[in-house]
Write a protein that binds this DNA or RNA. Structure first.
Lengths: 349, 349
DNA sequence: CTGAAAGCGCTAACAT
DNA sequence: ATGTTAGCGCTTTCAG
């Protein structure tokens, strides 16, 4: 920088001002031009580390992503990175487990690196890391999962609507014995999709209390299969399953096949997320599409707002999901239930 | 740090030495303990930015990943990040397009951030970015794709072997009219899988010159379908397709279905990568499994070596792929070819 | 083994 | 509109 100043015949501070868009106006255009030319000749670039040390800012954003279930988080990451890098930010990704202490540690590490903000894709419905970020005053936003209370801005899908779309579709096809293969309820996705399911069942005049619901601890195909097995065994009357997630739905496929049944003939299945390739599985999965990439982009926008304007009230962006009908859902077979059940989710009189 | 020094009753430089594992031995253990205790009390952590400014090192690694949302880069990223973070490195991910100038820019940005090294998942067979990294002396390694010449260390799959596994499997099933649905040849993956295909065809006593090969410009399902369509139309005699990639193979599924044919009955298909869910498509895809996660891990190891020991000669780690047989490959129908062809890849006399 | 001092490259008062 | 100056928080010679 000193060299540039010399070559341009100005003082270093002028160079600094010329380089910073915010302060460039203080310098007469002609000097700016000379500085730029000198910099060009010397192949000079601003040193972000030194600048960061001085200013406390860094043009760096940290993203905390759960180290599992990559299918959903990749497009979120891509979307966020894409948008952020348009505005000169670089992204540090930290894959974290569910250990809360480790999460805090990682976050502290990022903060020590002077990140300008944090995007959390890891939030549980009441998350200590969120408390931490708020205490420390680090601009942060949530993505994909929200807390119970809106303490930070975030962008999520309308989970209630998503679940409702699924149930409505099934009811329209003629199903009345619908089960829910739920996700982990400590995350808003699992929690709300379940609530949406229950609500939609009632709204359709079915008996919500009798609608079978079982929950997986993690969004994996294996868990999906295990839970679906339980569901199928306990309730031979069901003709359709609303899964909280595509991977769970695919697990249900496994369980259905094992029991010698056929999807969709005996059991219809609806997933959630529309992750890549579920249109190619057999049968192609009917599911709820969420635009995760868009989610990432909007989270990036929200974060930039949070960085620029401290003390904006937290804002929750809710993206509308979309039902994608494919081959895994059809009308129930004549005679409706596979077998009568003692306690079936039958239509209220 | 000054505060810690004061509390511990020592000089700041002693604190610095106590905190750095490399220099800790210069300090008498008792002092170290006092420093640590003081730091603990004050909740002090080393400031990586300031340290970085001083030392030029950063415990930061940059990874350049193609911005295409292919499933192979995610596990590479996860594997690399996992290993790197075990050793105290953080990872900056940059998603880059194929524009070479933009890549250079991004790399320069990372270097300006004082990254200790770079992992490139973007390399073409003769890559200007590699030249750049070498010139600048930035420790760098390649992953997934290699250059024509080994200028940098890297880890890749044994592509020749992978292709051979695919062809051998098909030949064993009785196929003799096998086509190659190739990938972009500017990348080692596309280039070598094609070479491996040709070589394996010959090795099995078939006529390589007559084996139909068509190439996709990008690894997408759409390109796969388009190229497979050409292949099918031009060569009605083929009974099997070796695709350079799973996505291309899935595209071939589309093309086969369109032409009123059936996979595997009329045409067997082999993919490459074994990406998630290809076991669930219909028919389940026979493919070549590459452990991308392991690849990422090993690339991380290689990079750490490159960072520590300048001037180690470049080393190429080649991981063995594995054939995964599923439902997309069966013996050709009696009568072998669908139709006779003028120039078929028939068994040499 | 520890202290003193210089400075990494930049920015932001403050002064002109 | 530009120059002066004083650090940001650390590491690393150099002395002792």
């Amino acid at each position: 920088m000193k060299q540039v100043a010399e070559l341009a015949g100005v003082h270093v501070s002028t160079v600094s001002r010329a380089f910073n868009p915010e302060t460039r106006s203080m310098v007469v255009p002609e000097s700016v031009a000379r500085v730029m030319k000198a910099a060009e000749e010397l192949g000079y670039r601003l040193d972000p580390v030194a600048a960061s040390l001085r200013t406390g800012r860094s043009k760096l954003v940290g993203i905390l992503v759960p180290d599992i279930a990559t299918n959903v988080f990749t497009p979120i990451l891509t979307g966020a990175t894409e948008r952020l890098s348009e505005h000169g930010y670089s992204v540090i990704v930290a894959y974290v487990g569910s250990d809360s202490n480790k999460q805090l540690d990682l976050a502290q590490g990022l903060i020590a690196r002077r990140v300008d903000g944090l995007i959390l894709a890891t939030a549980s419905r009441d998350d200590p890391l969120v408390s931490f970020c708020i205490e420390r005053g680090v601009p942060s936003v949530l993505v994909n999962r929200a807390e119970k209370d809106t303490r930070l801005s975030g962008v999520v899908s309308d989970e209630l609507l998503g679940a409702q779309l699924a149930v409505d579709h099934l009811v329209e096809l003629g199903h009345s014995h619908i089960a829910h293969l739920g996700g982990p309820r400590e995350h808003s996705t699992g929690y709300l999709r379940h609530r949406g399911f229950i609500h939609a069942i009632s709204a359709n005049g079915l008996d919500a209390a009798a609608a079978p619901c079982e929950f997986a601890d993690t969004y994996t195909r294996e868990q999906g299969a295990a839970v679906a097995r339980r569901l199928l065994r306990a309730r031979p009357d069901i003709t359709a399953i609303v899964a909280a997630n595509d991977l769970l739905a695919l697990g249900a496929y496994d369980a259905i096949r094992e029991s010698g049944l056929n999807c969709p003939r005996d059991i219809s299945v609806v997933g959630h997320n529309d992750m890549p390739l579920v249109d190619l599985v057999e049968p192609p999965l009917t599911t709820i599409r969420i635009s995760h990439r868009e989610m990432g982009r909007q989270a990036a926008d929200l974060l930039e707002q949070a960085i620029e304007a401290i003390d904006h009230p937290p804002r929750n962006v809710v993206l509308p999901p979309k039902l994608i009908v494919r081959g895994s859902t059809v009308a129930p077979r004549k005679g409706a239930a596979r077998k009568p059940a003692k306690a079936s989710a039958s239509r209220k009189k």
